[in-house]
Design a protein around this nucleic acid. Structure first.
Length: 923
RNA sequence: GCGCCUGUGGUGAAAUUGGUAGACACGCCAGACUUAGGAUCUGGUGCUGCGAGGCUUGCAGGUUCGAGUCCUGUCAGGCGCACCA
């Protein structure tokens, strides 16, 4: 009988669905294993062959763990809210809800064909009210919490208020000192905003007019938006923010406990950007005070000017009346430039404020400048400039002809600054003679002691901007009373997103939810307890901003543990059972976005006792990107004649992308090509050896390159099991590699041969010694490979084993029984079919993973390397149980007749490996 | 500029972690069978040379009896961060 994969796969997929084979329930008698893929956002293009790579790899691991007796949670869902889904809807002119549902359905259909062991009972969608209920809930908890820097954890804001009251703490409001109880509600609220973990802040944001929304830092690269590549400008706006920066140190420390790749940890460390330094207070000549941040406190004697960021509030305060006009003009000018313009054009600019600072170490007067090379958002927005030892200060000093004082013995600063933190300090009073390291420490000690500064650690990590002027996102469960945000009562959640017709964003930043004023008032009437407030119109309707894409994706893995719970995000029992994700699989492009937000979000939930683990993802595997392999045809210019690849140089040709689906092994199907597009109907070909050979290149997989390969097509032609095996065979999971359908035949042939071997295997006898050896070699290899995610080599091991069994003419049922279980993670459909034919009435998923027996693996002979006279000469074989004397004897006997030796010059013989035998044989 | 990663046949890649480099697969070559088919099977296939042999893991050194693997330098490619004081 033929291997009719189509029939087999459909049969088992139906059976799995009907019998809920992959449904998982909490079972305290079994060890848990939580495996998770980064859930996809369902784009309109559907899956291409690169998307399932990570899913297949994790599915293999999930099935393997299950066969080893673990209770495996392997869920799947959709990240359906956010910009990409909305942009797609806008482009196609349909409502995002409609496009999202259609895309989800399409994804599901494609995924089902590949035979994953997902538990679809636990499916979640970030845009479904059951789900975003808990996104909104978490936001409210963040609003009602502050970060206690002494305890280093989140605490209820009520505790802070209590402290303010009981300590009778005083606050300076516009120069008037008041105690907490003397403050108005608005003033109290303003103060608390500086502490809340979710807070309203007037901050510089990345405003993208084209997308009509603000963006988080990780959504902007090189001054343009990641989605669409539109320019982004800096603008001050009142926005919801998350105090991610409070968790900077814990986010850094947590990395040490994680089993993640070094490169992704490094990326996160860079992004968090911890730097140890000092804040030093300076006074101006006219008695005003300001603070700077530096990591090079040791260079204080080389400060020849100070620089303020143009956006800094200090600029106004410090600038003298004479210079005001000039400074204002400069500030105005820089504010008009976008981030991108500033980045491209790095020319030195700046203006003198007219004011001078006094160096607290030696009393010298230092001019204060304003320049855009100092950022307002980092440190204090003001620096002390040491041109001798900082390249940016150096460029500035050279440009404006400011003095440069070298501070390291023997350094040459005539053409460039000396930035290295090494050498012996000079020109620095009491620091002279110290190393840079010592000088930094001593200066820090000095400033602390003198009360002119303090040791300070700064982080580059900024607070996340949490509102978007968009429609397709979670509504904020917030309304306003006298401008003060109020949380909608917890038991009134979720606050549903209204169905509106006009959901397009506006360039001015008016949120699309503004089109749903009626909804806002209606919701308020339903959700706010004190109805008189509404009638008096003393309150404003619901917040019209929505949450960003990362809101829904930050704690989704917790929800999978208990997806239908309507009382809480996750029940205590379920959280304690599943703990956290043991294996997380996804792309490394989320290193500074999702993987930071998610860790932050989980740390907060840990602090408030919702999550029992501080880190959400214990082990992380970053699957590589699958690139496309494009094919080209070569058209002779101004004709409709195409010349084959190796003849193209004889003509003046233009390479043209051709659909890879009408090319096989780089040979063009000329008939299909003519039919492909009307302009090629009358195409003519110059062939070589009767074939048209195409050129090729590795490029991104995209529609415009005609190199997109659809998994449906592969499943149709070769079957899901072949697709699964081939994707793994392609190379290491973590490596980026091009897709090349050409090689798939090898995997298909393998399954075909396996099928025929299984068919022939009706012999009930025990396997022979050779057969057992081959089988147990495979068990060992596959077990080890799966543990190490080295799937490409385990596929190879299957092929080797099959070749061996075939040449042994193996026909034993017992062998096929073991093979069925071994292959089940990779090719589950065929495995089930074998299992059933062997007479089992349970799923192969409930089988037991075989253990190998070292006894069968023993080699009769051991190969060893022999070295003579310092040169490795050749390998010799010895019986496995040979002792030292026997080996020595055999080697020396061989040496007498060996062509490598003349029989008289042996000095040293070393036999390796495994057992090392040194034979020193003096002549 | 700083940090991280990767360089092996025509192609995707292996290499028990220091032990006969190129497993396995694609492709290619030759053959078998066949109602010549993009089916199946068998053998060959790193480069070079008629040959014995020689050469070979980006390049140059080093350690070692022995290096793709370890060390130093260098070149190339990729990724991340980047006026972060």
């Amino acid at each position: 009988m033929e291997y009719s994969f189509k029939e087999i796969e459909q049969k088992w997929q139906k059976k799995w669905a009907n019998e809920q084979t992959y449904k998982v329930t909490e079972d305290v008698n079994k060890n848990k294993f939580y495996i998770l893929n980064m859930f996809p956002y369902p784009s309109g293009a559907g899956l291409h062959v690169g998307h399932p790579l990570g899913y297949i790899a994790s599915d293999i691991y999930a099935r393997y763990k299950r066969l080893n007796g673990f209770n495996v949670l392997n869920p799947m869902g959709y990240d359906a809210y956010g910009l990409p889904a909305e942009q797609y809807a806008i482009q196609t002119g349909q409502h995002p809800e409609i496009t999202t549902n259609a895309n989800v359905a399409r994804y599901r259909e494609q995924l089902d064909k590949i035979g994953f062991s997902f538990d679809w009972n636990r499916e979640i969608r970030t845009c479904s009210p059951d789900y975003y209920h808990w996104t909104q809930w978490a936001f409210q908890k963040m609003y009602e919490s502050y970060y206690d820097s002494k305890l280093q954890k989140a605490q209820p804001i009520s505790k802070l208020i209590q402290e303010f009251q009981s300590q009778n703490k005083t606050f300076n409001i516009n120069g008037i000192v008041k105690t907490w109880n003397e403050l108005s509600e608005i003033e109290q609220n303003d103060i608390l905003m500086n502490y809340r973990i979710a807070f309203l802040g007037e901050t510089m944001v990345n405003w993208c007019p084209e997308l009509g929304t603000v963006l988080a830092n990780d959504e902007v690269v090189d001054g343009v938006s990641i989605r669409g590549g539109y320019p982004v400008v800096q603008q001050k706006m009142r926005q919801w923010c998350l105090r991610v920066s409070a968790y900077a140190q814990r986010l850094l420390d947590g990395l040490e406990t994680l089993d993640w790749s070094e490169s992704i940890k490094e990326t996160q460390k860079n992004w968090i950007g911890r730097s140890e330094g000092a804040e030093i207070q300076f006074k101006t000549k006219d008695g005003k005070q300001f603070t700077i941040f530096t990591t090079r406190a040791d260079t204080i004697f080389g400060v020849t000017f100070m620089v303020l960021a143009p956006e800094s509030d200090l600029v106004n305060e410090i600038t003298t009346r004479e210079q005001k006009k000039e400074v204002d003009a400069y500030v105005e000018e820089t504010s008009k430039r976008t981030e991108r313009e500033r980045m491209i054009d790095k020319k030195v600019s700046g203006v003198f404020t007219g004011n001078y600072a006094i160096n607290p170490f030696n009393g010298k007067e230092i001019p204060i400048w304003v320049s855009d090379y100092v950022l307002s958002g980092y440190g204090t927005g003001a620096i002390m400039a040491v041109p001798a030892h900082d390249s940016r200060d150096y460029a500035f000093a050279k440009h404006f002809n400011l003095p440069i004082i070298p501070l390291i013995e023997g350094c040459d600063v005539s053409t460039e600054s000396f930035d290295a933190k090494e050498g012996i300090v000079c020109n620095s009073d009491f620091l002279n003679g110290l190393s840079v390291k010592e000088a930094i420490a001593k200066t820090k000690q000095y400033i602390t002691h003198q009360g002119i500064g303090k040791v300070k650690i700064n982080y580059k990590l900024r607070d996340a901007i949490f509102s978007r002027q968009r429609y397709w996102g979670e509504p904020f469960p917030v309304y306003y009373k006298n401008g003060i945000p109020q949380m909608i009562p917890e038991d009134c959640l979720p606050l549903l997103l209204p169905a509106v017709d006009k959901f397009q964003p506006t360039e001015t930043g008016e949120p699309p939810l503004g089109n749903a004023q009626e909804w806002a008032w209606d919701e308020l009437r339903k959700k706010v307890v004190d109805k008189s407030l509404i009638d008096n119109k003393t309150i404003h309707p619901i917040e019209l901003f929505t949450m960003p894409g990362f809101a829904g994706s930050s704690a989704y893995y917790l929800r999978y543990m208990d997806p239908h719970n309507s009382k809480s995000l996750v029940s205590k029992e379920n959280d304690e059972y599943w703990q956290n994700v043991d294996l997380y699989v996804g792309g490394s492009e989320h290193a500074t976005g999702h993987l930071i937000y998610s860790r932050f979000w989980n740390k907060f939930l840990f602090d408030i006792g919702v999550s029992c683990k501080e880190e959400p993802f214990q082990k992380l595997i970053n699957q590589g990107m699958i690139q496309g392999r494009s094919n080209f045809v070569y058209r002779i210019k101004n004709t409709n004649t195409f010349v084959s690849y190796n003849l193209r140089k004889q003509y003046d040709t233009t390479p043209i992308h051709v659909d890879v689906n009408i090319v096989q092994n780089d040979i063009l199907d000329t008939v299909a090509f003519k039919a492909w597009r009307s302009e090629y109907n009358d195409a003519e070909f110059i062939l070589e050896d009767g074939k048209y050979i195409c050129g090729w290149a590795i490029e991104k997989m995209s529609k415009s390159m005609f190199n997109v390969v659809n998994p449906d097509m592969i499943v149709e032609k070769f079957g899901a099991d072949t697709l699964r095996m081939y994707e793994m065979f392609l190379g290491p999971v973590e490596q980026s590699k091009p897709w090349d359908t050409n090689g798939i035949d090898g995997c298909h042939r393998f399954l075909n041969k396996l099928w025929h071997l299984a068919e022939k295997s009706t012999n009930e006898e025990s396997p022979t010694k050779e057969e057992l050896k081959s089988l147990h070699k495979l068990i060992k290899k596959v077990t080890e490979d799966i543990e190490h995610f080295s799937y490409n080599t385990s596929v190879a091991a299957f092929m080797i084993c099959l070749n061996e069994l075939t040449s042994l003419k193996c026909d034993k049922k017992q062998v096929i029984e073991v093979l069925s279980v071994l292959i089940a993670p990779f090719a589950p459909h065929i495995a089930e079919e074998f299992w059933e034919k062997l007479g089992h009435n349970t799923s192969v998923c409930d089988a037991k993973w075989p253990q190998y027996n070292e006894e069968y693996l023993k080699e009769d002979n051991i190969k060893m390397m022999i070295s003579f006279n310092g040169k490795t000469r050749f390998a010799m074989e010895f019986p496995a149980d040979a002792d030292k004397e026997a080996i020595e004897k055999a080697v020396l006997a061989d040496a007498q007749t060996s062509k490598y030796l003349d029989g008289k010059s042996i000095i040293k013989v070393i036999v390796v490996p495994g057992r090392m035998v040194n034979i020193v044989h003096p002549k």
